[in-house]
């Protein structure tokens, strides 16, 4: 067994054991970390494999959340149908938006996604017939699949992390196969990739759509868990947090979104102990991490290893 698979097994075991030792509040934080890991996985695939900065992920997160909220509360759908519709709609919107904007590259593309993120927030705010505006939509039923209700934090914890780990496995396979090879190659030398017969635009659209669907899935899980959605959850600030997840972790490593998601969930929580300055402190911690660990958190073991053997 390679060292990597040993780490994977240990991490999965740790994730399984956690709810039995954690108090309720910490379990809830870990559930939020799973949502972040799922949405961050999408952003991470775009950033780490394709070199695309996506600042619109909170928009897709919102689409998933509102589809579940409106579908189950107003239209009386089952949670599974609401989730499916949210993920599907997010994918279609990403396809429609991605087609034109993914012809851009670099900063221009990042700015375009920022624009979409801002428009998304405004739409969530203005279309109050659909989203409830600032009042939001409350009273979502607990998520249930085939009659089994995920109505306690422990149950939801296993659902959210099960989904997150399953998706990580799919993403891991994707990046280690033929499409992943092409995606990483585009990051390094796009003209040469075109010269090998690859339709780069098509490839980027597919990853963008996957990213949006992951965002929507995370948003839908979030909506069911907190049973109430409102526009503050889907601002550009949330998109920046999603982007931080792969950035902090080191975007080229797919499973890095797990430590990345734990970081953006747990560190701010610990820092609240310092009182009003906790947000400033979080900013400071970010600066320190990216300065000391240019490869991100996932580069830490290798860095420590070098130090020990030296």
């Amino acid at each position: 067994m390679s060292r990597l698979s040993l780490w994977i097994v240990l991490s999965v075991l740790a994730i399984c054991a956690l709810p039995f030792v954690l108090e309720r509040h910490s379990t809830e934080l870990m559930i939020f970390a799973a949502f972040y890991a799922i949405a961050g996985l999408g952003v991470g695939l775009l950033l780490g494999q394709c070199g695309i900065v996506n600042l619109a992920q909170a928009f897709f997160y919102g689409i998933g959340a509102y589809a579940s909220a409106y579908g189950t509360v107003v239209l009386g759908w089952t949670p599974a149908l609401g989730m499916l519709v949210g993920v599907g709609v997010a994918g279609l919107i990403a396809l429609a938006i991605g087609w034109p904007i993914l012809k851009l590259t670099g900063f221009f593309l990042a700015l375009a996604t920022l624009g979409i993120g801002i428009i998304g927030t405004i739409l969530f705010f203005e279309w109050d017939w659909l989203t409830g505006g600032t009042l939001g939509i409350g009273g979502l039923p607990p998520l249930s699949i085939a009659g089994f209700a995920f109505d306690t934090p422990d149950r939801f914890y296993f659902l959210a992390w099960g989904v997150a780990l399953g998706l990580l496995w799919l993403a891991h396979n994707l990046t280690n196969g033929r499409p992943g090879l092409a995606m990483r190659a585009v990051r390094d030398a796009a003209p040469a990739v075109e010269g090998l017969g690859v339709d780069i635009h098509g490839l980027r659209i597919k990853v963008f759509v996957i990213c949006a669907m992951l965002g929507a899935l995370a948003g839908s899980l979030f909506a069911h868990y907190v049973s109430y959605v409102s526009v503050e959850s889907f601002t550009v600030q949330r998109s920046i947090v999603f982007l931080l997840i792969p950035v902090i972790a080191g975007p080229r490593v797919v499973w890095g979104v797990v430590p990345g998601a734990l970081f953006v969930t747990l560190v701010p929580e610990w820092l609240t102990g310092f009182g009003d300055i906790h947000q400033m402190l979080f900013g400071l911690v970010l600066v320190v991490v990216v300065t000391l660990l240019p490869e991100g958190l996932t580069g830490l073991p290798a860095r420590l290893g070098r130090r020990v053997t030296r």
Binding site: L181, R184, A185, R187, D188, A189, A192, G195
Partner: peptide, 10 residues
């Protein structure tokens, strides 16, 4: 125009 972050095999 090689893919600098990828291995020679890749």
């Amino acid at each position: 125009k090689i893919f600098g972050h990828m291995t020679v095999a890749e």
